[in-house]
Design a protein around this nucleic acid. Structure first.
Lengths: 344, 344
DNA sequence: CTGTTAGCGCCTTCAT
DNA sequence: ATGAAGGCGCTAACAG
C-alpha cells in the first residue's frame, strides 16, 4: 500500500531505502543495478524497502554520476511528415530495446530553432542524436564539425560534413520513377521538387534528369517546403505555366498529395490526363484516391540503422571515420501512375 | 577559434572557466545565471573565458542541484495523428517561451508502454507531463492518483481521476454535426465511432444520439483505432451491413479519411450518395477530395492551454483542486457534406 | 562585489 | 558479501 505521496515532500533516496532496510547505500545501489555480489537475503530486504518507501531512482543524479543521460534524441524538420513518423517509430523501438528514452524535437522548419537544438547538445542532456534535416545551413555545418555528442544523419549530408549517415539512393529512385512514367506513355514529364538548395532536392533532380537525354530541359518547379500545401501551390504554378505535363514526378509524398489535389481541382484525370509518382512511400501514400505510386525510401529501416550506428558510437563499439550507409529504393506502382491497368 | 573538441576529453566545467578567468566558480555561476551582483569587468572576463574554453553548462548537474529538469513531456497515443501534431506544435512554442524543452513520447497504442512511461515519471527526468490518451486502463488511473510530477490531460479524463484537463465539447460537436447531416437531407445517418470503451468514443456517441429521437437506434460501428485503416475497415463493414447510410458521422478525421476511401472504392459519390463529417479538423481534413467537413476540436489551443495549466502547477502558481477546462467546438462545413452547394 | 563551501543523489573504488 | 567515503558539476548560503 503506497501512501499517496504529496509532491511537496521530497522523494525518497537510496539513503532512505538503506535506512529502512537497515543497510548501507552501497548495498542498495548494488541491488538496484543488478550487481551479483549481493546475498539473496540482502536483495530481498532491499527490494522490500524499495517497495514500501516507493523509491524511484533519480535520473539527474544517475546522469551526473554515470555520465550518460540514457536518452537519445531525434531531431526532424517536421514531425507532421509521415516519413519521419516511420523513422521515429523504428528508432523508438530500438531505443527501448536498449533501455534508452527517445526524445523527439521537431523544428517545424525554423532554422534558428534547429541550430539552438544542436547547440544545446553541449549540455549533454542526451547521449546522441539522429538528425533528419533537409537543409544544412552554414552554422549547422559548423556545429556538426565537432559535436558534443555523436550524431547520425538520416538522409544525405553535405560532403564537407564529416558525419555518420544513412542515405537512400534517391537519385536512382527518381530516375526509375521517371522511366516508369515514360513507360506509361507519358511524353511531357515534369517535376515538382522540394525547396531549391536542399540536399534532397538536389539528388532527386539529378535522378529526374538522368531519365532524359542530356540536352533535354524538362520543366521543374520548386515547392517552398515538403508539405501538401506547398505541393499544391507548385502544381498550380506548373499547370498554369502552359507546360501541360502528362506525367509528374514529385520529390516527396506530401508534395504529391498536393499535386494530386491540384490536378483534381483542375478537372484533370489522374492517371490518364496526368500520371503521378511521389517519393517516400509513407503511410498516406495509400490514403489518397487514386492511391499514390511512390518510391519507397525505407524510412523505417533507416531509422533503425541510424539508431544502430548511433549506439555503436555511444558504446564506443566503433570509433573510426564517419560511415556513410545507403539503402536501395523501390518503386511501388499504384493507381496514380497506372495508365495501363497493370494493377487490375 | 574553438579547438575541435574531441569527445574523449571531458567537457570543461565551471571550474575550468574559473581558472581561465582567474576567479572563483561562484562568480562564473553568477555570470552564467545572469545574477546582477557581478561587476561588468568580471562579467566580461568570465564571458571571454567561457568562449575560449568552449564551456557549456551540464544539464544533469543543473537538474540535480536545481531540482528541475527544464524539460516537460507530451505523451500521446500516436504522433501520426495530425491532431496531436497540432497540439505538439503549440505546446512546443509555449515550452520554448519558458525555456523548457519538450520531449515527445508516442506509445503507438501500446498500453503497456504508456504505463511504463507514466511510471518512469518518478525518475523526475521531466518537470511535468501533458497526456493525451484515448484510453485509461486501470493501472494508468492508479498511476495518476499520485503522480510524481504534475500531469495535465488533453481530452477527457475518467471522472474518478483527479487531474487537470483540457477537454472539448465533443458531445455538442457531434450533435451539431449530426443535425447538419440531417439538414443536408440525409435520412439514414450512421456513425463510425472510435474503439469501444474509449472516452472519446463515449462522448461522441452521446452527441450523435442527441441528434435523434430517444427511441431511435441509428447504426454505429466501432473502429479498432483512430486511424484511416481502421476507419476503412469499419466503413466497409457498415456498407456491407445493408444499412445503406446516406450520411456518416466519423468520430475523428483519420476515420473519416478511411471512410471516404471506402465510399469511393464502392463507387459511391460523396457527398451526394453519402455525406461525411469528421472530427478534429486537423491538417489533412483539407487534403482529401472532396475536402472533409469536420468538427474543429481546437487541438492547437488546447495544447497551449494544457501547457499553461501545467506551468501553473510546476511553478506552484496554482496548487488547488484539479481544474477541468473545456473549449467550444465549431463545425466546419466542406465538400464532403455539402449537398446543396452552400459553399459554391 | 567576490570567494569558500556544503551538499543535490548516485555509483564505485577501496577497505573490511 | 558489505560498508565508508569521494566526487560527478553545479548553485546558493554564508563569509569576507
Amino acid at each position: 500500500m503506497t501512501a499517496p505521496t504529496s509532491r511537496n515532500v521530497s522523494a525518497p533516496t537510496i539513503a532512505d531505502v538503506a535506512a529502512r532496510a537497515g543497510t548501507s547505500v552501497a548495498s542498495v545501489s548494488r541491488v538496484i543495478n543488478d550487481d551479483r555480489r549481493v546475498s539473496p537475503e540482502m536483495r530481498a530486504r532491499v527490494n522490500a524497502a524499495v517497495l514500501d518507501t516507493g523509491y524511484v531512482r533519480n535520473a539527474a543524479a544517475r546522469s551526473l554520476r554515470g555520465r550518460s543521460a540514457h536518452q537519445i534524441s531525434l531531431v526532424v524538420d517536421d514531425i507532421g511528415n509521415p516519413a519521419y513518423v516511420q523513422a521515429m517509430r523504428s528508432l523508438q523501438d530500438l531505443a527501448r530495446e536498449h533501455g534508452l528514452r527517445l526524445l523527439v524535437e521537431s523544428t517545424f522548419g525554423q532554422l534558428e530553432e534547429e541550430l539552438k537544438v544542436m547547440h544545446a547538445l553541449g549540455e549533454r542532456y542526451v547521449d546522441g542524436v539522429v538528425l533528419a534535416s533537409t537543409r544544412f545551413a552554414a552554422p549547422l555545418i559548423e556545429e556538426l564539425r565537432s559535436p558534443a555528442v555523436p550524431v547520425v544523419v538520416i538522409g544525405s549530408a553535405p560532403c564537407e560534413v564529416q558525419v555518420d549517415s544513412v542515405g537512400a539512393d534517391a537519385r536512382g529512385g527518381a530516375r526509375q520513377a521517371t522511366e516508369h512514367l515514360r513507360q506509361q506513355g507519358c511524353e511531357r514529364i515534369a517535376m515538382i521538387n522540394g525547396p531549391l538548395g536542399t540536399l534532397p532536392a538536389k539528388s532527386r533532380l539529378a535522378g529526374f534528369r538522368d531519365g532524359f537525354e542530356p540536352e533535354a530541359s524538362p520543366p521543374v518547379i520548386h515547392a517552398d517546403a515538403f508539405t501538401p500545401d506547398a505541393g499544391y501551390e507548385a502544381a498550380v504554378q506548373l499547370l498554369d505555366s502552359g507546360a501541360s505535363p502528362d506525367g509528374i514526378l514529385c520529390a516527396a509524398d506530401p508534395l504529391a498529395i498536393g499535386t494530386l489535389n491540384a490536378c483534381i481541382d483542375r478537372g484533370l484525370d489522374v492517371p490518364h490526363d496526368v500520371a503521378l509518382v511521389g517519393m517516400d512511400n509513407g503511410r498516406d501514400a495509400m490514403m489518397s484516391r487514386p492511391r499514390l505510386s511512390s518510391v519507397d525510401l525505407h524510412f523505417a529501416d533507416r531509422g533503425r540503422l541510424a539508431g544502430q550506428m548511433l549506439l555503436d558510437r555511444i558504446q564506443v563499439r566503433y570509433d573510426g571515420a564517419p560511415r556513410r550507409q545507403s539503402v536501395h529504393t523501390d518503386l511501388i506502382v499504384r493507381g496514380s501512375s497506372d495508365r495501363r491497368g497493370i494493377l487490375a
